[in-house]
């Protein structure tokens, strides 16, 4: 199981790096789905099967398909890929990379001080559901309102005048 965690982690990192380096959007999207699936595996290893299933279905499924639809609608072809190549100059990477590296260094520096080993134990759908519809029912309602607002906003924004 531990080996699975590290393998999935390496796949996730590589796939994610591949996403931001891609010039072809569809390829990038596929790498992103790979990364999300790897993270789903990690969730499973960490004893959260419900989260892992949702990650696969909602994230890697629904949301990414939405992306795909939009990319198809925009119909970005060879022209865009050439443009991407032009935009992605080595110099453009330097400043963001340094910034992110500093941030990462700081985060790692903070997290290094935690010394605790997780013994993965299954926290299944039942426990999550009991909490969701018990003390956190208000959060569920808020989430539904958020989705409704997103729906209305998306409809309005994407409408042709």
């Amino acid at each position: 199981m531990i080996a699975l965690f590290y393998i999935a982690a390496i796949i996730a990192v590589i796939a994610t790096v591949a996403v931001i380096l891609q010039t072809n959007i569809v390829h990038g999207l596929l790498y992103l789905i790979l990364s999300l699936l790897a993270v789903a595996v990690i969730f499973y290893v960490l004893g959260a099967p419900f989260a892992a299933v949702l990650e696969a279905i909602v994230y890697a499924g629904a949301i990414m398909v939405l992306f795909l639809f939009v990319i198809m609608m925009l119909n970005l072809g060879q022209h865009t890929r050439d443009q991407e190549r032009k935009w992605l100059t080595p110099r453009g990477w330097i400043a963001p990379s340094i910034m992110s590296a500093i941030l990462l260094g700081q985060l790692v520096n903070v997290m290094r001080q935690i010394d605790y080993d997780i013994v993965p134990a299954q926290v299944g759908v039942m426990e999550v559901s009991a909490l969701l519809f018990g003390p956190y029912v208000l959060a569920v309602e808020l989430a539904s309102i958020l989705l409704l607002a997103g729906l209305v906003a998306a409809y309005h924004l994407a409408k042709t005048k």
Binding site: I2, F5, I42, L46, M111, I114, D115, D117, I118, P120
Partner: peptide, 11 residues
């Protein structure tokens, strides 16, 4: 088997 917490967080 156990996984150190910081490994998950660092990921």
């Amino acid at each position: 088997e156990s996984i150190p917490v910081e490994h998950g967080l660092i990921l």
